[in-house]
Design a protein around this nucleic acid. Structure first.
Length: 166
DNA sequence: GCCAACGTTGGC
DNA sequence: GCCAACGTTGGC
């Protein structure tokens, strides 16, 4: 059984790929998802799946690296913690509406693949996040993943030849 | 900071 | 179950 690929959005002002790298082997709890479609995707995640990390609401929205899923989905207990910003009045211990997973840093891409590049790639026209801009967790098909990795490689090559050393 | 897209809420 | 009002997301 092959690992699935996911795209996880985060606002770098809140939590960036560098913050994830700092967590090291401990990883980070991906919680606070409060959208049913995203939650339903999250609930199908498995240990060993790949998570592409996307920076949103920033100067250059882009996929900036990747992570591993290191836990099965579990209850997002912040939903029943009144002190949490993710508190949800409609959740209770016996009826917890939301889930979380843990992820661990894998790599930071030297040259992020920008939203503009994703939009420009014909192979990615069906990528769910491009069709539903507000979805914070979305699946990435194997062929789409390949296309994204190709863009990342292409970016790296170009930077090797064109980046002047100042 | 603006605004389009879109999910959620709640009255009826 | 419809739909208007409202809130949030996120690119630009």
């Amino acid at each position: 059984m092959t690992a699935a690929i996911w795209l996880l959005k985060t606002e770098p002002d809140q939590f960036s790929i560098l913050d994830l790298a700092d967590r090291g082997d401990t990883g980070e709890r991906w919680n606070g998802i409060r959208n049913y479609q995203a939650r339903n995707f999250l609930r199908t995640m498995q240990v060993g799946d790949v998570a592409l990390i996307y920076h949103s609401a920033c100067a250059v929205p882009a996929i900036v690296g990747s992570a591993w899923v290191i836990s099965a989905p579990y209850d997002d207990v912040d939903a029943i913690d009144p002190a949490s910003p993710y508190f949800d009045v409609k959740s209770s211990a016996s009826n917890l509406r939301w889930s979380a997973i843990d992820i661990q840093f894998s790599q930071r891409w030297a040259q992020p693949v920008t939203l503009a590049q994703l939009k420009a790639a014909v192979e990615l026209s069906d990528m769910l996040v491009l069709r539903q801009a507000r979805l914070s967790i979305s699946p990435v098909l194997p062929a789409q993943y390949s296309a994204i990795l190709a863009l990342a490689q292409q970016n790296e090559k170009q930077s090797t030849f064109t980046t002047p050393t100042v």
